[in-house]
């Protein structure tokens, strides 16, 4: 089978031509770097994404603090992880890299803060 994918790993957005059989990738072309081949393989087997959102912040100088995951998760789990993020809250101060939810849903990645926010003065 053939599929055309857009690699999302960097702004180049290479157009990948992928030949595969079931879960097995036979060839990838169109990638400017080796990462593209890895992306295509992962995309055929089990697409993974990182997501960014925000978490409610108590006593902060802002009402929320932005977060992201420390690594990608299966695409099918995005909405489940969003539900966890929506129900979480943290108390200021927060620093970049602070773990907000450890090992979210047992997926092996943490939800971490991406912003420094001080306490409300």
């Amino acid at each position: 089978m053939n599929r055309t994918l857009t690699c999302i790993l960097c702004p180049n957005g290479c157009e990948l031509e992928v030949v595969y059989e079931g879960n097995e990738v036979q060839s990838v072309s169109g990638n400017k770097c080796p990462k593209g081949a890895g992306y295509a393989e992962q995309e055929i087997k089990n697409p993974m994404r990182n997501i960014a959102s925000s978490v409610k912040l108590e006593e902060g100088s802002m009402p929320l603090v932005s977060v992201r995951l420390t690594g990608p998760i299966p695409k099918a789990k995005i909405m489940d992880v969003m539900a966890e993020i929506r129900s979480a809250s943290v108390t200021a101060p927060v620093k970049i890299g602070d773990v907000v939810i450890a090992d979210v849903l047992g997926l092996g990645v943490d939800v971490v803060a991406t912003r420094n926010v001080g306490r409300r003065s």
């Binding site: 857009t6 690699c7 999302i8 960097c10 957005g13």
Partner: peptide
């Protein structure tokens, strides 16, 4: 916009 944003 960029192709990667159409995709993701």
């Amino acid at each position: 916009g960029l192709p990667r944003n159409i995709e993701q």
